[in-house]
């Protein structure tokens, strides 16, 4: 907790990164397996979006659970 606020800003950041990570991960996995996907970006073969989405999910989960409001003090 931070001061009087029940919900920590770090928890909110964790939640947002988690949501972003899931969206980016799913859309890039779809892009990877879809036969209709157009790979117009440089180094698309690295599938950076999948890696970045996964990183956001991991960071998001860490913050989300470390600063969850229902955590016992």
């Amino acid at each position: 907790m931070i001061g009087r606020h029940k919900i920590s800003i770090w928890f909110i950041i964790g939640l947002q990164l988690l949501i972003y990570g899931i969206i980016i991960l799913i859309s890039n996995i779809y892009d990877y397996i879809s036969p209709f996907a157009q790979n117009t970006i440089v180094l698309s073969e690295l599938h950076f979006g999948i890696w970045w989405g996964a990183i956001l999910v991991i960071i998001g989960l860490i913050y989300f659970f470390s600063f969850r409001p229902w955590k016992k003090a």
């Binding site: 972003y20 980016i24 859309s27 890039n28 892009d31 790979n39 970006i41 440089v42 950076f48």
Partner: peptide, 11 residues
């Protein structure tokens, strides 16, 4: 635009 694919561009 050169490097960011779906979602990353939005980010």
């Amino acid at each position: 635009a050169r490097y960011a694919g779906p979602g990353l561009l939005g980010l």
